[in-house]
């Protein structure tokens, strides 16, 4: 297998506070890899660094064979890395259709973009029904669908999802997880950050457990699901 994303010794700080203290992991093409961990473990910081919104103190990031560390954020999506940020961050005063168009901001193939918009509406029919409404009028769960659909509009090689199930009802949560599995079946590689460790590990090929800026445990999805310390800490068992 080829490593699509290779992170080595990554350290990231906010001022003097180091939030990510030297982590290494790889994501192979076609896989789902998940990062789980407690609040403040550094998962979001890691993703924001990968997409260029934060700059690392040290370490290397290689994506699709190219170094990413000095590439400005707005160039990274063009390389095939899309990021659906924590807390959705849809553009509230633009319509749903316009939000999706922005996901395809750099694409010149307008007919294929239009097809992808249709595909997004098939995936999430509510987005099609409300296409001309301001995205800020959607419910939290619907906004989450929009954020995910918008990230897909760039046709990424690697899709990074930061807590896609946050604030969702169990039914919506199930729907998002099914969608992630379908995306994988279509060949999209996914780096998934989740609070819902059970759901994430069930889907994932590999998982990494983060605690205060470090990866403390790694393994395949089933391995981590079976691990007693993981079950204790993240799946609420004692």
């Amino acid at each position: 297998m080829t490593a699509l994303l290779e992170v080595r010794g990554l350290r990231v700080a906010y001022g003097k506070i180091e939030a990510v203290k030297g982590i290494s992991f790889t994501v192979n093409a076609g896989e789902i890899v998940t990062l789980i961990g407690t609040n403040g473990a550094g998962k979001t910081t890691t993703l924001r660094t990968l997409s260029g919104l934060l700059h690392p103190l040290a370490g290397s990031i290689r994506f699709d064979g190219k170094p990413l560390t000095r590439v400005p954020a707005h160039r990274i999506v063009a390389l095939g890395l899309a990021h659906s940020p924590e807390g959705r961050h849809i553009f509230p005063r633009l319509t749903i259709a316009e939000n999706l168009q922005l996901g395809a901001f750099l694409r010149k193939d307008t007919t294929a973009v239009a097809q992808d918009v249709e595909r997004a509406y098939q995936l999430f029919p509510i987005l099609g029904e409300r296409a001309r409404q301001p995205a800020g009028t959607l419910s939290g769960g619907e906004q989450q669908m929009l954020a995910m659909a918008r990230a897909l509009m760039s046709r990424p090689k690697l899709l990074m999802l930061d807590e896609p199930s946050m604030g969702l009802s169990p039914i919506m949560m199930q729907k998002i997880m099914t969608t992630i599995a379908e995306l994988k079946a279509d060949g999209t590689t996914i780096l998934l950050v989740e609070q819902n460790a059970q759901a994430a590990l069930t889907l994932a090929d590999h998982g990494h457990v983060m605690e205060t800026g470090r990866i403390v445990l790694s393994g395949t999805g089933p391995e981590l699901l079976g691990d007693t310390s993981v079950r204790k800490a993240y799946l609420g068992e004692d």
Partner: peptide
């Protein structure tokens, strides 16, 4: 509306 997310769009 959201400069960081705008960067994520390219």
């Amino acid at each position: 509306q959201d400069p960081d997310t705008a960067k994520l769009m390219g």
